[in-house]
């Protein structure tokens, strides 16, 4: 076994915390016992780093321009996402839901922090926070308002609490004034938060 299994240098002037030592120790022991390899850990980090909201944005932009793709996405998200060369990993079933002028979806996981990480990458800190998990289900409009999203009272707010193996991906409303934009330009308007449902997609004027 290599003496130093780290692939990234320790910051020299950063004293290691107890937590860091323990991660090191657990990894070293799991390697010694042949459960995992250092290379597998490095690759797993790289694979996760490669999953970003930009992937989700490509999916949404395609759904905006291609109604047949959107219909397939809503029926079977995982297979449809694979059509454009994105694999979402093993751990969950992605389910896409569509926001419209009349219905707005927002996603939370009150029991832990389930998130479509196979597509969008690591969840943001606030998504994992106790306050978001507590409040998103009981006062969603206040929560959305804290994110700067005020919804009219004739819009039906649908909060999805992900308690099982479904990982919900929100397809935000395509902003007005985007006719004729390319799929790539449209993808730039699709933010992570709009795919969680705490924001709308950006409007071109605000780019």
């Amino acid at each position: 076994m290599r003496e130093d299994h780290h692939d990234q240098p320790h910051a020299p002037d950063h004293p290691m915390t107890e937590f860091e030592w323990r991660v090191d120790a657990v990894q070293a022991l799991l390697i010694e016992k042949g459960v995992i390899t250092a290379d597998e850990v490095r690759r797993a980090v790289e694979e996760m780093d490669a999953r970003t909201p930009a992937q989700g944005a490509r999916v949404v932009a395609r759904a905006w321009v291609d109604p047949a793709f959107k219909a397939r996405l809503l029926a079977d998200a995982k297979a449809t996402i694979a059509e454009i060369g994105i694999t979402v990993g093993f751990d969950a079933t992605i389910v896409a839901v569509e926001n419209t002028e009349k219905v707005h979806h927002a996603v939370v996981c009150t029991l832990c922090s389930c998130y479509p990480r196979g597509l969008l990458g690591y969840p943001p800190d606030w998504y994992k926070s106790l306050n978001y998990r507590s409040r998103a289900v009981v006062e969603p409009r206040s929560v959305l308002s804290e994110f700067g999203l005020e919804l009219r009272s004739d819009v039906e707010v649908r909060v999805l609490d992900s308690t099982a193996d479904m990982r919900y991906l929100v397809i935000p409303v395509r902003p007005a004034g985007t006719e004729g934009m390319s799929e790539e330009e449209l993808a730039d308007l699709v933010t992570r938060d709009s795919m969680i449902g705490v924001a709308q997609a950006r409007t071109p004027a605000l780019r």
Binding site: I36, A44, M48, R135, E146
Partner: peptide, 19 residues
């Protein structure tokens, strides 16, 4: 209120996730 500040995951956090 929800604290919306975010931090980039440290190498240690990513490694825990990866393991």
């Amino acid at each position: 209120p929800i604290d919306k500040s975010e931090h980039d995951l440290s190498w240690w956090e990513k490694r825990t996730d990866a393991i």
